[in-house]
Write a protein that binds this DNA or RNA. Structure first.
Lengths: 228, 228
DNA sequence: AAATATATTTAGTCGCGACTAAATTGCGGC
DNA sequence: GCCGCAATTTAGTCGCGACTAAATATATTT
């Protein structure tokens, strides 16, 4: 029961994240496709199927053959615990040890699986129970609640609108360095100045700085979230 | 080449530690018995044999059938790196996060295998490149040198002698709490007041404190080291 | 509605690192 | 110098989590 391997935790986390993305895009589907999961985890589709069957047997997901997978409450709780570990670690590494913005993700990716509850508590306490990590992603609370102010995708903003950046994607170091260089970080205010004809790109400027135009692909502009 | 599993690292560490103990006891043997290794790792003897064969093939140890095993320079370097991780982590957890003395070992035991070189450097720098962990065990340097002042076993001290505690065993939390309660920690000065007839116990008092007599078994008094 | 394309699962294998049961080797006592 | 016991190794198995090749189910096109 207390024994969840790193592999199991990675799958649950991936199902959660992909399910969230699905939910936000269209209505409510939440069901995650096997291939999408496999691609995200860098694993072959048959491997994903095998693990999904196992996780179903463990009561952590519901797997409908040829349809996809969905977290059970137990699986969701576990996924959120791992994500809490990950984001607390990112925050801790950045603030306490000065690890650069674009490196914390990879460090946290391995540490998240071995962080004890005791250490988790100490880290959270020392940071003052933060609600978001350095990239602006919400840190789930221990009870499973996810603090989440109403945010929207940068991509969905109309031309001319201004908003404050809330979250940026965390998994790709190169993207992070690009965003950092152009001043787009959680907290900066940006204005949408133009958008290309078909699927972008979206042009924004960081208000206050050099007011430089910065081009973002549709995919990137969809994974940057803003508060209005 | 860069891929050393946690299991491999644990074996190398155990061979190193057992080899050190051997060396200090009698002349120079250093060769570690399969069963001793298995017992220390909580593993069956056949499992140990299998792994020893594998490590021999990897060039990390020399395994003479039915005789025992010994580290090669490469294996020794790897073992020292893991031990460095372990002891740096213990020190960091105790000082930066306030983890109690008797808990740091178990936390470090899992973290040591996933600590990146980058994080290791940051931790070492933040701590000011310490040379010993909270239990007084020397922290190997990156180049493989082990800082080690001439120390002797508390057990080997004659009755009446005084000395300063340098190291205490780190792996058993109960022992640590006992020692902590009686004031025996690295840095405290102790006097040997008596020794039992056959294999102890050894009676010591922590000078300065309540001057309470404290009884130590031979095994324990052999794993406490003092500087004179 | 049939044909084709794509997604998913089944079947069978592999490496790792543990295990038990059964040989083997080597060492201390006589 | 032989004998018995303890230490060690061999032989064979298992669970985990990955893989490839091949079969099957779903989706899309016509």
């Amino acid at each position: 029961m207390t024994s969840t391997s790193a592999a199991v935790e990675d799958y649950l986390k991936a199902v959660y994240v992909l399910g969230e993305e699905e939910r936000d895009a269209d209505g409510r589907s939440r069901v995650v496709a096997t291939t999408a999961l496999a691609r995200r985890l860098g694993v072959s589709p048959p491997s994903a199927t095998n693990m999904l069957k196992k996780l179903d047997a463990l009561g952590l997901i519901v797997h409908s053959r040829y349809r996809g997978a969905e977290l059970t409450p137990a699986g969701r709780a576990l996924a959120l615990e791992v994500i809490r570990h990950h984001r607390l670690l990112e925050t801790y590494l950045a603030t306490a040890l000065g690890v650069p913005w674009d490196e914390v993700h990879e460090e946290a990716e391995v540490l998240e699986h071995v962080l004890s509850e005791g250490l988790e508590d100490r880290i959270a306490a020392q940071l003052g129970d933060p609600t978001a990590d350095p990239h602006g992603h919400p840190i789930p609370r221990r009870d499973g609640r996810v603090p989440d102010a109403g945010q929207s995708r940068l991509w969905d903003l109309p031309v001319g609108a201004t908003a404050t950046v809330a979250r940026v994607p965390d998994s790709d170091a190169r993207t992070l360095r690009y965003l950092d260089a152009t001043g787009i970080r959680p907290g900066t205010e940006v204005r949408v100045v133009a958008v290309g004809p078909v699927d972008g790109p979206l042009f924004v400027t960081a208000i206050g700085s050099a007011e430089e135009r910065c081009a973002l692909s549709k995919v990137l502009a969809e994974s940057i979230w803003v508060a209005r």
